[in-house]
Design a protein around this nucleic acid. Sequence first.
DNA 1: TTTAATATAATAGTATTACTATTGTATAAA
DNA 2: TTTATACAATAGTAATACTATTATATTAAA
Lengths: 225, 225
Amino acid sequence: MEYQLSFRVNEHIYLRDPESSELGKQIVKNAIDLIYDLGFEHFTFKKLAIKMSTTEASIYRYFENKHRLLLYILNWYWSYMEFLVDFSLQNIQNPNEKLAKIIELFTQSLPESVGKLDYNKFLLNQIVLSESSKVYLIKEVQEINTHQVFKPYKDLCNKISEVILNINPTYKYSRSLSSTLIETAHSQQYFSKNLPRLTDVADQKDESFVFNFLYQFVFAALKKD
Amino acid sequence: MEYQLSFRVNEHIYLRDPESSELGKQIVKNAIDLIYDLGFEHFTFKKLAIKMSTTEASIYRYFENKHRLLLYILNWYWSYMEFLVDFSLQNIQNPNEKLAKIIELFTQSLPESVGKLDYNKFLLNQIVLSESSKVYLIKEVQEINTHQVFKPYKDLCNKISEVILNINPTYKYSRSLSSTLIETAHSQQYFSKNLPRLTDVADQKDESFVFNFLYQFVFAALKKD
DNA sequence: TTTAATATAATAGTATTACTATTGTATAAA
DNA sequence: TTTATACAATAGTAATACTATTATATTAAA
């Protein structure tokens, strides 16, 4: 049995739903490839249009600007990760095991086995590591936040935070620890690869380093005295 | 007694040393103000030139592009923070107290009492919160890293990592914990202000929230079993 | 089955941004 | 007094971001 995964994305993010047409889907798919190749700063709608043999103006009918397109991809990623958390925690009762599983999801490559995506999981994961914080580290953050465009991120943190409170109901920083878990998973993976002296990774190919680091400090933080 | 603080910045970052002329100093000082006002994405050399009543071309004689200018400011910030760590740990013997002091430095407003700067400490601190990660989350990171442009950040982490190893000599992640401390201090302060649902902050004006959160988890991570 | 309405994307622009080659002027050295 | 050279301004070009308008295809109505 093979199934396709798809998520509804907040309609304030796009001008026209990219899921509603073949061109729209291709825009998102090709954008992931091209942002991976060029980095977000060098990525432009013109280059994307050339890659897809369409025109800039056609892409502008779907997204106001490249930031919105990145935000769309991240909303998609956060929704997907929340699904993956739900999916992976099925039939696990022990909350400690649950949290360990969550840390694994954010530090290892995304599982190929769980559902089929329209997008390349590896590339999606890579651009999340380098580009995700650029969707909220902007002057307009407060303004676009009123349109709930970060809701999937907050929902994801909430879900993790529930598991945390299950382990230690008196812990006062369950949401901050959740967002720190996610942000640190990303930054330490990025540092391991690009600025390893900011980490203690021995072998840059070692996928388990960030898992081990996060596992140690997240569980230490939750230990009751 | 009042003294002026100044740091040597890696010469690969600029075309002409901004410390070497009045115009150069003004470029950096005004850039901090304008990046704070507009955000890095909307900041351009043209706007900076108009603000300073000079020309774009004159600014280009100092910095190759706006990213290099931001990198210059961050190098300055990292050097300043390393100085502040050194300064603040004087006469503290207890390594636990030392680390508490370090967390305080990264989570409270920068102390006005320590030395005079050419730059506005408050604005410098604010743009670090929102813009600092943009200096390394770029496609060219590996290439510019070969010129040691991130050395002040690595030195700063090393210094913190020494204090950590003083507390727990067998802890295996002293550098990762240091970079996580700094990155988390920044991201949680940013979230507290702009996306509070990603944190557990009660009152957005509460400066001690991020300190308390970080203090709890850093010391928990270092506890020996 | 013809006409009208709608949806879609392409053409063809403009304004802004990023960057550079060249020129002009002031100061210092020969 | 002439010659360097240091510096910043003028005056550009190329790329990027964005938009108004037009063309075409499809669907719906008469």
